[in-house]
Write a protein that binds this DNA or RNA. Sequence first.
DNA 1: CCCCTGTGCTTACGTCGTAAACACCACGCT
DNA 2: AGCGTGGTGTTTACGACGTAAGCACAGGGG
Lengths: 259, 259
Amino acid sequence: MADDADAPPAVPGERQPHTRALRASPPGTARTPLDRRRVLAAGLEFIDQHGLEALTMRRMGAHLGVEGMALYRHVTGREDLLDGVVDLVVDELYGDPEVYLAPQHGWEDYLQRLAHGVRRIALAHPAVFPLIASRPPAAPWVRPPLRSLRWLESFLDALTSHGFSDGAAVAAYRAYTSFLLGHLLLEVSQRGVPISPLDDPEGAPEAGERSLAAYPLVRRLAPLLSEDESATEFEDSLENLLERLQRVRRESRPPGATL
Amino acid sequence: MADDADAPPAVPGERQPHTRALRASPPGTARTPLDRRRVLAAGLEFIDQHGLEALTMRRMGAHLGVEGMALYRHVTGREDLLDGVVDLVVDELYGDPEVYLAPQHGWEDYLQRLAHGVRRIALAHPAVFPLIASRPPAAPWVRPPLRSLRWLESFLDALTSHGFSDGAAVAAYRAYTSFLLGHLLLEVSQRGVPISPLDDPEGAPEAGERSLAAYPLVRRLAPLLSEDESATEFEDSLENLLERLQRVRRESRPPGATL
DNA sequence: CCCCTGTGCTTACGTCGTAAACACCACGCT
DNA sequence: AGCGTGGTGTTTACGACGTAAGCACAGGGG
């Protein structure tokens, strides 16, 4: 593949082609030194643009106008960079935490807004979302995509302070994360195909057509299957989940829930 | 990494007797030549044992008592090998297709047995299941973990032949796959931690304890969160999904569904 | 007998993640 | 002013990876 990563003007042989940006670059264009935040932000941007598999330490360096090894000053390695990108995306939802922490509108409203918030960031960063799902969480019982203790605490708080017993709140957490993960992973991967680093634009349709001959029902329903009902499906499933949780809540009142 | 994968000299008591083109091997012990099936099976075994990230072409060769490049005679590359392993696992459920194809017990029974079958193979190969979820499917509307056109056809057949309209069957497919993927991915990753290539046996608990101080609810509910309720949670969610699909089915009878 | 075809081995290239040593700049101290 | 000093980016280097190309050797039909 044609790799134009080395942007510098240069012809081979020039002695100091690399340091010019820092030292003797055109007036006013002094580069502010890297820091962890900038590296992470660049990583997020890079993944959004080129996909996860294309992310390489050297390419990340080039993306920042820097030499690759420079990243190790701010990040302990590739894994750490990926973790940092995940945290970055996860923290996007905390833009104004009030929105998600405020329980004044009831737990159902909270779960609704939280779900839509998570869906929004999933769709904003489709190539990162699988990473959120697959990276080992802080503790084994922290479940993606609600990957942070802050979110977990906020979630449990919203439910237990609105009539859920401890056990019911935990059960709700499990059901809620399963729903979000399953739905959003599939929605994102359905749209996310074009971002793949390898494009195989032809051949696929033909093969699909051919093999479809053996599956009459699939062929008949193909138009229906191709439709994108993700949004309404999300709403329906979420609403159904909430109804189910209402039932769970009601049936979870027996002993001393101490709150 | 204490990896003993490199065993250049004779591997004592290795699985397959090996001679054939091996110049310095003892006489008489003929190794049956590799073929695609064996390579794929070895790949599955390897991933089950050492995890996905540990799978390397050279290591796979060593695992088969062979030199790594030999695999390329039977597999076009690493990606192809991975795809083959996924197909292998997916096909495990077809041991006796009758079980899943037979509609004589009704669609609910079918969905029940299919779900439990998928869960069984997910738990049998926890390290492979994320692969099933993340590998691009044959067509964009084929959703993991029901990754094959055969399964899709069988699924649609079971529903449409039991009173589901086309649209309701497709909606059911979407809801069903979302549920399976979300639940099983989380269940598998929860158990699958020990298989990780990097073990970080210390530090984690302490850090967990320390950061937990800021999250009182999480700390209070930690014992509950640590419990493994996957099985009953799976049953409950599945039952709830089936009830919901019954409703969908009933309400999907209106116009000319041409069947 | 030889040659053909299929199988595994050897060598080689380019890229990856990353350790280590180096070069340079902006500073505070004396 | 000179001079360490520490932080930042560069260079070099190593081992492992995926894989292209060519070699070596087996068994089976002329």
